[in-house]
Design a protein around this nucleic acid. Structure first.
Length: 789
DNA sequence: GTGCCTGCTCACGGG
DNA sequence: GAGCAGGCAC
């Protein structure tokens, strides 16, 4: 232990030794805060004799929790497993699984994700006759989420809306929404926190159970906590008041999600006896990168003054690369990565491409695929919100218990059973009239008037579900899932439903991944029941799925990159209107602009050795081409830190003052690749006010021949989003080498005989009678039928 | 009830 | 540019 303490710097050691009372650790980016936290926990156990059972550490993501757990395990060894290390949401879920009955929920409650919330809100709006063109579901849900984050429940909300018509409608929707969640025995993400606080407030005995357990409470990423989370932490640490929070106000980037930056800024006011320790020595980046970050963040007013420094060298200058168009930018990045891997011995895993919005990933992916560079996109559509995954989970949920109406409705007609909206409406009405759950009402289908033939279809459905239920006795989860897929011919359904063979294959890949997750879960959990799995699934974040070793470039939003670091970071799309976003610029809200600036700070500090900032004069946004000036954040970086200037032409809308700023600086060591003879992408070389011609940004390849791009490598399923838009070329239907009467082979359906061929405007419809699967009608391009000999 | 077409809206970030 | 609701034909 003494050894490990010696490995810390003075400030870090101070933070470890200051074990009693409230403590705020202001930890700048890369200042070793996880190290401090883990050493602190180890110190508590080894030197202070604290029982691991009495220590709690809360994080925001499972990944962060997992990392902390591993590092603590390594330091502490035996006994570390009884430390409570978990995310806010899973901590609350765990507590509520034990005590939710005190709040009138069943402890087997389900957790609703964003999609589920939207479905419920849709029904609510319909029910309350709210015109969703005037008042969107999203708007209402945002209002509700905002309220919950501030610990305002539907009753309080109603009291606050007096006299405001729109607010009253939202209030009504809030009330109805909560009613429905409660009826479905469901909680949304915000409810997990809100309900736990509520549980503690109304049940002192339950609270005492936890305050007696947690003698030392640690909170990571404290700047991202919202009011409800603050209250929760306050309650949990209320016993001995040994509360240690770690955060960086400069990295607070979740205001839109209710994060209250005042929690960290006012910590000393709330806890007047608090000790504050600043960690400003950075162990990650070069001084140039830190100076750039410091230069940008210094423009914020509402912050705690601090400045990062390092003992390391200045390092290389920041690469600034302006382009005419977004595709050129993407091509440059892909080419640069390929070059550095080939010539400079880097690995793909050294690189990350960061951007402001998920939509920007598409273009970048296209060029990475073209260059054959393996990559993984983090974020976008969450694995568990994919249609096929949600379908199958809805089956599992319904088999587990039919209390989640949403899940039952989702699968009632998947695959198609000719049970439509009208029938569902009638059952719903019947359920309401007789105070039944939706699933219960299904059993009484033959008593529901005017259901007609649909009643029998419903009967078949419930019989099937009951049969599955009976099987859960002797089936494992994965076996059950495979049995479901078999029984409902889910693969056939997906195949018919898909727009392309590639889409279908992607979905199958996802299902395979789900099955391996299930198997993995069953092997590594003691009580591997369905509810436990569903809970784990409900709380995973995108970043959680990123694996450590694979050698590939990571693409993600800046939000997704928080807490990560890379040797070489590409920061793409640095234009006013993209980053900071159009809304922020036109909104004129200073705090919002400061949040964007903090995001820029986070982005810059992800880089260890090299940072390449790029932008494009012309970019396709929302379907039309936009011309944006270089981001103000780039112009806030001291120009002498960059290896390229901001030429006037890059910045058509900037005023003189801003535009001239970077030009009176010496020229940097801008590298030009000597070995390349490829023509420049720039039509005209930039000229500077001084009349000197700028060296070209590194010349790169002309567009390559239009071959069908090959997916770089079948990495995680998430990469499939990228493969999708490049698929069309391969699916041409130019040569159909079979005719009516021929025997053909299909990849999935096997051998069959062509019964009919009907040419259409886009593609030929082929009817095939398969030996095993019967008659199928398919499009020639997608079916990829092969004539057998 | 299903499938197709059209026209509209929405385009920031995420547990 | 994409996804979705609503209208329409079958």
């Amino acid at each position: 232990m003494g050894d490990s303490l010696a490995s810390l710097n003075d400030k870090q050691r101070e933070a470890v030794l200051e074990t009693e009372g409230p403590l705020l650790i202001l930890a700048g980016a890369g200042s070793g805060k996880t190290r401090v936290l883990t050493h602190r926990i180890a110190y508590l156990i080894a030197e202070k004799g604290v029982n691991p059972w009495n220590i709690m550490a809360i994080t925001f993501t499972n990944k962060a929790a997992g990392e902390m757990r591993n590092r603590v395990d390594a330091l502490v060894g035996m006994g570390s497993e009884s430390i409570w290390v978990a995310t806010f949401h899973s901590s609350c879920a765990r507590i509520l699984r034990r005590f939710a009955d005190r709040l009138g929920y069943d402890t087997s409650f389900t957790i609703y994700d964003t999609d589920d919330q939207k479905s419920v809100m849709k029904e609510v709006c319909k029910y309350l006759q709210i015109d969703t063109k005037q008042l969107k579901e999203r708007t209402i849900l945002n209002a509700i989420s905002g309220a919950k984050n501030e610990l305002i429940d539907e009753v309080k909300f109603a009291e606050m809306t007096y006299g405001d018509f729109t607010q009253q409608r939202i209030s009504n929707a809030y009330t109805e929404y909560q009613n429905r969640l409660r009826k479905n025995n469901a909680m949304d993400f915000d409810d997990l926190i809100l309900n736990t606080v509520e549980l503690f407030r109304s049940n002192p005995d339950v609270l005492a159970l936890y305050t007696e357990r947690f003698h030392y409470v640690h909170v990571d990423e404290y700047q991202d906590t919202n009011t409800a989370q603050f209250k929760l932490v306050e309650l949990l640490s209320g016993g001995r008041r040994n509360l240690c929070v770690v955060g960086d106000d400069d990295q607070s980037i979740y205001r839109f999600r209710g994060a209250n930056i005042r929690n960290i800024l006012d910590f000393e006011r709330v806890y007047p006896d608090a000790t504050v320790i600043r960690l400003e020595q950075n162990y990650r980046s070069t001084q140039n990168i830190l100076d750039a970050a410091n230069g940008v963040i210094a423009n914020n007013v509402g912050r705690k003054e601090k400045s990062l420094w390092t003992q390391e060298d200045a390092g290389r200058l920041i690469h600034y690369r302006p382009f005419d168009t977004a595709p050129q930018e993407a091509e440059y990045i892909a080419d640069e990565i390929r070059h550095e891997v080939k010539k400079e011995g880097r690995t793909y895993g050294d690189f990350a491409i960061l951007y402001r919005t998920n939509a920007q990933s598409r273009l970048l992916e296209e060029y990475l695929v073209r260059e054959g560079i393996p990559y993984q996109v983090v974020g976008g559509v969450n694995f568990y919100s994919r249609k096929e995954i949600k379908d199958l989970l809805a089956y599992l949920k319904t088999i587990d218990n039919g209390r989640d109406d949403l899940a039952v409705k989702r699968i009632l007609n998947v695959p198609k059973r000719s049970i439509g909206q009208t029938t569902i409406g009638k059952i719903e009405q019947y359920a309401i009239d007789h105070e039944l759950g939706f699933y219960e009402a299904l059993f009484l289908a033959d008593q529901i008037p005017s259901l007609g033939k649909a009643a029998e279809k419903i009967h078949n459905f419930t019989t099937m579900i009951q049969a599955f239920r009976a099987k859960t006795e002797f089936y494992s989860l994965s076996e059950l899932l495979e049995d479901i897929m078999d029984t409902i011919s889910y693969e056939d359904y997906l195949h018919d439903d898909a727009d392309s063979e590639e889409e279908y294959e992607g979905r199958i890949e996802n299902i395979d991944e789900l099955i391996s997750k299930l198997v993995d879960f069953e092997q590594n959990r003691e009580n591997a029941d369905l509810s436990a799995f569903l809970e784990e699934v409900a709380l995973v974040a995108d970043i959680d799925s990123v694996e450590e070793d694979p050698d590939r470039v990571l693409l993600m939003t800046i939000h997704g990159a928080k807490g990560l670091e890379f040797s070489h970071v590409f920061l793409a799309g640095m234009e006013d209107g993209v980053f900071p976003g159009y809304m922020t610029i036109s909104g004129g809200d200073r705090e919002e602009m400061e949040e964007e600036r903090r995001l820029a700070y986070v982005a810059i500090t992800r880089a260890r050795e090299e940072l390449t900032i790029s932008c494009a004069k012309a970019r396709m946004l929302r379907g039309n081409t936009q011309y944006n000036p270089v981001s103000r954040f780039v112009r806030e970086i001291p120009p002498q830190l960059m290896d390229n200037r901001i030429p006037k032409s890059r910045n058509p809308f900037a005023d003189e003052q801003e535009d001239t700023l970077p030009f009176d600086r010496p020229f940097g060591d801008y590298p030009v690749r000597k070995e390349s003879t490829k023509p420049s992408i720039f039509k005209t070389p930039y000229s500077t006010p001084g009349g000197r011609t700028l060296p070209k940004a590194r010349p790169f390849a002309l567009p390559k021949p239009a071959v069908t791009p090959v997916k770089a490598k079948p990495f995680l399923a998430k990469a499939d989003a990228g493969a999708k838009q490049t698929s069309a070329a391969g699916a041409g239907f130019a040569s159909i080498k079979y005719g009516v009467g021929d025997q053909v082979r299909h990849q999935k359906f096997g051998i069959g005989v062509v019964k009919a061929m009907e040419p259409g405007p886009r593609d030929t419809k082929v009817t095939v009678d398969f030996e095993e699967y019967g008659t199928k009608i398919m499009y020639a391009a997608f079916a990829k039928l092969e004539k057998t000999q």
